[in-house]
Design a binder for these strands. Structure first.
Lengths: 200, 200
DNA sequence: ACTAAAACAAACAGGTTGTCCTGTTTTTGT
DNA sequence: ACAAAAACAGGACAACCTGTTTGTTTTAGT
């Protein structure tokens, strides 16, 4: 009653627009759905519903599904790799320990979570890289950045074959994640981590 | 005119039915299209057209797209792994040489072909394994068979960590193929082959 | 305060999708 | 030879998806 008198007319919705927030929510929802179902199996209206956004609003920020997909790769997939891989690698005191930590942390999270959805970069790469050159270019830059950062760290200890070793690390991680996906458990990651340690 | 008189009644098509052949053609076309575009991006009528078969005939042999997909995995993807991986591994005189041969043969074929479509098992796994349990079970049996055959061969030389090494070989192959797909060249496979040799 | 642009809502249109249905032809069993 | 079953043809159909269009509300510039 008190409050109603305080705001008799100011009952106006007073909802504020938040374009950046809406855009971010769409990106989050799309990233999550692409990760679970894949790009082609996910509809734009499904993304809009999941983000709590109307189709018109989504179309305003992303004129096409492809534009949304490219934005997801650039602004979410890249960030995910940066957070779970590159940052731990840079702050570790050796490439060996970094790799074991990342592999085992991922494996533990997968087992704890109870479901393995796979690596976002690889999921989208195997689905889209061959068909669409634009997606391929975007994904390739992520892989390049990934391997380059890894090679820089490895070079501190094994200057000889740093580039080749970096490729090997990324490859065995991607493949281990694929095997983990069919088995729905993190064990393959731990096995590959053990073998990678012998290599470094 | 001449010919019309020669074949007034024997004009009957005399075409013979070939259910097995038709089924096989559908499987081949589906395998090829799934490999190029992915499962979800390929339509059943596209498969029918590619195989030169009517939609009705296709539906007679495969009542649904999922049934067709499962048949492709069981009867084509499994055979592809058997041919390009398991058979060379068994007939090689050592696991080391077998792995180098397979990796380099694949890499050479990719570079010669000019396009990298990726490994069929991995393509379908990353696209479908998480969403559909039936596909996952089918794909998992292929991975298991793959690793088991590889471990048997490795055990001849390194009895200790054969299972773990087999996982590592399959993983690094799968991942190397993913990187090869974004770069559209076979080089990553060769790099991983070199590192795998040091491990065995 | 007023106007132009941006942000959002909601329904629409053209094209595709996977599936099924009804006939017709071919093969098989007896 | 004849009936039953399998193999095949061709189209129909309803659901869906993407992209667009039109109209309303909110923000920002001046």
């Amino acid at each position: 009653m008190y409050e109603e008198m305080m705001t008799p007319r100011p009952e106006r919705p007073r909802r504020k627009n938040d374009p950046a927030g809406l855009r971010s929510r769409v990106l989050d929802a799309a990233f999550c759905l692409f990760q679970e179902q894949g790009y082609n199996a996910t509809g734009v209206q499904e993304i809009a519903a999941s983000a709590g956004v109307t189709g018109g609003a989504l179309h305003h920020h992303f004129p096409s599904k492809k534009a949304l997909g490219l934005a997801v790769i650039r602004e979410r997939v890249g960030a995910a790799v940066e957070e779970t891989w590159l940052e731990p690698v840079r702050s570790a005191h050796s490439a060996r320990s970094a790799i074991r930590e990342v592999f085992c942390a991922l494996a533990a999270e997968l087992d704890r979570n109870g479901s393995v959805r796979g690596c976002p970069v690889n999921n989208l790469t195997l689905e889209l890289a061959f068909v669409d050159p634009d997606f391929r270019a975007e994904l390739r830059s992520i892989f390049d950045h990934w391997r380059r950062t890894l090679a820089t760290k490895i070079r501190e200890e094994a200057p000889a074959d740093a580039d080749r070793l970096a490729t090997m690390v990324v490859a065995s991680y991607s493949g281990a994640m694929a095997i983990a996906k069919v088995e729905q458990q993190g064990e393959p990651l731990r096995q590959c981590a053990t073998e990678l340690e012998r290599l470094l």
